[in-house]
Simulated assay, not measured.
Amino acid sequence: MHANGDDFLLVDSRDKHNPVTSDLVRYLADRNHGIGFNQLAVLLACDDADAHLLFWNADGSVLNACGSATRGAADLLMNESNATQVTVRTGRGLLTCERTSSGAITVDMGEPLLGWADVPLAEAQDTLALSLAGKPAACSMGNPHCTYFVDDLAHLDVAAQGTVIETHPLFPRKTNVHFVQVINRRHIRLRIWERGGGVPLGSGSCSCAAAVNGIRRGLLDSTVEVECDGGIVTVQWDGIGPVFLTGPVTRSFSGIVTDGN
């Protein structure tokens, strides 16, 4: 499936053993020899939710949050049960997902984590203005995020700058890196360097974190249209509670993966 071009693979293991390992993720993520995706999500049976989701980056690393794949899993679960609301368990806890009247999916992404130790950072710092050139802001949506606010994205080398910041010693678990151009208080343009993934067309959790950091800076209203390379999602945050992410998801294809022989 994909969400505005941010593609992910859903592996349904609700009634069987979970086969996913880091090696398998890297093999399947290879766009030449495997299937290709930015993230992979495994659906597992769950006693207190419609499914338990586990997330992996394309490089085989594990993450706690993926807004795009969560929307995709919610879409699948709603279609199965002919429902307009489901609950999923992730590393962020229990998340409620709803289908809007337009067919888009809204996910309660949980409250952002704003303390330096929660991001995490290697040392105590003000997460609204880190001690890096450009004074970016940081937060966590279950995974670390670092947001730069720039005047113009047109000539920015996202890959070159993102690689350096992702692996900076200030981020012991590495970080996603955002470059944000504020169009107006309800609309931002966002480009992303994704931890363990490169430059995607979009990212749900990055869209949430970028909006959160812009709202914290006083640059944005509580409802923000986030325009990524692949399309637009809407992020809502009242500055206190959970972040709500709304956007489309599309099924590209489905099938059975064999052992490759």
Rank of each mutant, 00 (worst) to 15 (best):
68 S>I: 02
74 A>E: 08
65 A>H: 03
86 V>K: 08
83 A>Q: 12
66 C>Y: 04
83 A>R: 15
76 L>E: 01
66 C>Q: 07
58 A>I: 11
89 R>G: 00
68 S>E: 02
73 A>F: 05
77 L>N: 07
89 R>F: 00
70 T>P: 04
60 G>V: 09
67 G>I: 07
88 V>R: 01
75 D>E: 08
75 D>S: 12
65 A>I: 11
79 N>Q: 13
60 G>F: 10
73 A>N: 12
80 E>K: 12
59 D>Y: 14
82 N>Q: 13
87 T>V: 10
58 A>S: 14
75 D>N: 08
67 G>T: 06
86 V>C: 02
61 S>Y: 12
68 S>P: 01
83 A>W: 05
65 A>C: 11
79 N>P: 00
73 A>K: 07
82 N>T: 05
68 S>N: 15
62 V>W: 09
74 A>R: 14
71 R>Y: 04
71 R>N: 07
84 T>R: 13
73 A>C: 10
63 L>S: 13
79 N>M: 00
65 A>T: 12
76 L>S: 01
84 T>L: 08
77 L>R: 14
79 N>R: 12
71 R>I: 03
70 T>M: 12
78 M>G: 02
89 R>L: 06
60 G>E: 09
67 G>R: 08
84 T>M: 07
88 V>F: 01
81 S>H: 12
58 A>Y: 07
71 R>A: 02
78 M>K: 14
62 V>M: 11
86 V>Q: 03
71 R>D: 04
70 T>W: 01
72 G>P: 00
64 N>K: 15
71 R>M: 06
83 A>F: 05
84 T>S: 13
72 G>E: 02
78 M>Y: 00
75 D>M: 11
69 A>L: 06
73 A>Y: 03
78 M>F: 03
72 G>W: 02
70 T>I: 15
61 S>T: 15
75 D>Q: 13
70 T>V: 15
87 T>K: 15
61 S>G: 12
65 A>D: 01
59 D>Q: 15
62 V>H: 14
79 N>L: 06
65 A>Y: 03
60 G>N: 09
78 M>A: 06
74 A>K: 10
85 Q>P: 00
63 L>K: 13
66 C>G: 10
64 N>P: 09
90 T>G: 12
82 N>H: 11
88 V>I: 13
69 A>M: 08
85 Q>V: 10
89 R>H: 04
84 T>Q: 13
76 L>I: 04
78 M>W: 05
67 G>Q: 01
74 A>I: 08
82 N>V: 06
62 V>G: 05
80 E>A: 04
65 A>L: 09
88 V>P: 00
83 A>V: 02
79 N>F: 03
85 Q>D: 00
61 S>N: 09
59 D>F: 15
67 G>C: 06
71 R>P: 03
62 V>Q: 15
67 G>D: 05
73 A>G: 06
59 D>H: 15
66 C>K: 11
61 S>W: 11
68 S>H: 14
63 L>E: 14
68 S>V: 00
60 G>I: 10
76 L>F: 08
81 S>V: 02
62 V>S: 14
71 R>K: 09
69 A>C: 06
79 N>T: 06
85 Q>K: 13
69 A>I: 06
84 T>Y: 05
81 S>D: 04
74 A>Y: 10
62 V>Y: 10
86 V>T: 03
63 L>P: 02
89 R>A: 04
66 C>S: 13
80 E>G: 05
71 R>F: 04
66 C>H: 08
